[in-house]
């Protein structure tokens, strides 16, 4: 187990190194001077030269790479080329809790919807209820999250005026102000995820219902409720957990888009704004940060399998 964790951790760091390197190389391979945007206000050629020297752009690319990588290892991702030249790490540190708030609440919404829906769908297979759930799950899968976000704003912010349409308030300023700002975006993110989990729970529960131990439980004369909650449901969750890594990725990908609708400056908004402003240090930093979340979230999910299902042995 310990060995497995160490091996996976090394693997995760290798992936992060590969991502960082790819980002560095790609940003410099693109046609034209990728850092030209940085120098756009310096029309004077001498000044351009000066700036180039200052940023080390006059050196060979492998020297730049090692210098840059050494900085990254020390947690220095450079600073934004705009305005007050805020360090990228500061921007990311501010954005991170916002994205995580959204993803966590989205996950919570999704489970609240998906667990009952999936179970009912499996237990009452081919009933009208099952068909309704299936159609809704398909709609949830097919609905663009940013569009759902807009619909929610139209209904709850513009028409009913019960929830704020945009912005974010940190948890430190009170629970309700925080929650009220993230309910709509979190719901928009959670719906697609809910659709997937519903389908997963349905199919894995259907498999479980056919197993011998469920028949034994029935033969023992246990009440149906006990059979389903004690014997069925926990086992039905295992295959669901195997898609958790993918699902988490989906939540975060959703957050990247939906943050932009609600003007919440999470990692997604930082990334997209960086791209639109050609703020390369910010883009590099955001890509590395978003990637780190995926890689380590997947790692945690993999390790969790063993906790949930003791039958799984790590090699």
């Amino acid at each position: 187990m310990k060995q497995y964790i160490i091996r996976r951790l090394i693997g995760a760091f290798i992936v992060m190194w590969a991502v960082a390197t790819l980002v560095f190389v790609m940003m410099r391979l693109v046609p034209g001077d990728p850092l030209a945007a940085m120098l756009f206000d310096a029309a004077d050629p001498d000044m351009v030269e000066e700036l180039r020297r200052q940023y080390g752009l006059d050196q060979p690319i492998y020297v730049q790479y090692f210098k840059w990588f050494w900085q990254v290892l020390q947690g220095n991702l450079g600073s934004s080329i705009y305005g007050s030249r805020t360090p990228v790490t500061t921007i990311i540190a501010e954005a991170f809790p916002r994205t995580m708030s959204l993803a966590t609440l989205g996950f919570f919404f999704a489970l609240i919807i998906a667990v009952p829906a999936g179970l009912i769908s499996a237990i009452r297979k081919h009933s009208a209820m099952d068909h309704t759930v299936t159609v809704f799950a398909f709609i949830g899968l097919s609905m663009p999250d940013f569009w759902l976000a807009i619909l929610l704003i139209i209904v709850f912010a513009a028409k009913l005026q019960v929830l704020p349409a945009i912005g974010y308030v940190p948890l430190s300023q009170g629970f309700w102000p925080w929650l009220s700002h993230i309910i709509l975006p979190a719901f928009a993110i959670g719906v697609g995820f809910a659709a997937i989990i519903t389908r997963m729970i349905r199919s894995s529960m259907l498999e479980i219902l056919k197993t011998d131990y469920m028949r034994v439980a029935q033969a023992k004369g246990l009440r149906e409720f006990v059979i389903l909650t004690r014997h069925g449901f926990p086992n039905a969750l295992i295959p669901v957990l195997t898609v958790m890594g993918i699902a988490l990725a989906l939540l975060l990908a959703g957050a990247v888009v939906v943050e932009n609708v609600f003007a919440i400056k999470g990692l997604g908004r930082v990334l997209i704004e960086g791209i639109l402003n050609r703020d390369y240090p910010v883009v590099q930093g955001a890509i590395i940060a978003v990637s780190a979340i995926f890689v380590f979230a997947n790692l945690i999910v993999d390790l969790l399998y063993g906790v949930v299902d003791p039958r799984i042995r790590f090699e």
Partner: peptide, 28 residues
């Protein structure tokens, strides 16, 4: 049309409907 959705809901609703129905058909 995002800035106008509070006064003109159809601008927010219909483009998304087109996306959703297309994707839904393919998923089916």
């Amino acid at each position: 049309s995002r800035s106008f959705i509070s006064s003109a809901w159809w601008l927010g609703v219909f483009p998304g409907c087109f996306i959703m129905i297309t994707v839904l058909s393919i998923n089916f």
